[in-house]
Design a protein around this nucleic acid. Sequence first.
DNA 1: AGTTAAACCTGGTTGC
DNA 2: TGCAACCAGGTTTAAC
Length: 283
Amino acid sequence: MPELPEVEVTRRSIAARLHGARVLSVRCGKPLRWPLGIAPQALVGSRLGETTRRGKYLWLPLQRDAAAAAGPAGVDGGLLLHLGMSGSLALQDAASEPGPHAHFDLGTTQGLLRLTDPRRFGAVLWCRALDADPAATLLARLGAEPFDAALTPRVLHAALRGRKVAIKSLLLGGQVVVGAGNIYACEALFRAGIDPRTRSDRISLPRAERLLAALRETLARALELGGSTLRDFSDAHGMAGAFQSEAQVYGREGQPCPRCGAPLRRIVQAQRSTYFCAVCQRR
DNA sequence: AGTTAAACCTGGTTGC
DNA sequence: TGCAACCAGGTTTAAC
């Protein structure tokens, strides 16, 4: 599910509601990728700040409520969230029953924030600060934000130098640019007319420029449409995304290329399916 | 150092 | 219908 557009759609659907809310309860279900890193009860009483995003991670800042008249004051720090492959967040009534895959609940004065994640590749990590571990280590390896103005074609081109890995795998890796998962990496390369098997260091400056533009257009369009809902992604209000029906190549093996009509192909790169048009996309 | 496989889990789909 | 095999939106970790 969650690539950058889905994570950003999720962020936008919870940020305003949760900002300033006070934590009333915390419930942990089955283990996620890593342990929370703090006693859940210690979070109770904290005030939530503004939810931000870095790559596919969400950051929910928590502030100790020193002015709390009664009850615990909470902690200073925050929660680093990752939705993994199957996670989604929902704002629900405090009384709603957790389903079998609801593995983290944050009860607040503004409603219940619930992480549901069947595959449990997701994570909720308590950190003292965004630049303290474990967040610092996890975020340190991330590449540029795709919409960062500092990421120019020249910067991207320079980052590809010396990288022999196929451009599709490089996009997926997130060490140069974050945000594209399997769907949007395939779609962006199709839009840019670049063969996904192309060695990264063979991408010329003009093609790096086209790739960056295509990546931004693809992600921006997905954001407009509320992301992609392949199986069960939805925003925190339960709204499904609509981008998947606009996918040009993803999941369309054997179907005609929307540009030239040739049958689309599927190959496997780094254990992941890649969909592309061998006619329109050149090395 | 850079690249590739294995690992974490569950659930849905496909094929015998 | 039952069951095994395979596939899936991500990222870390270990191994070549």
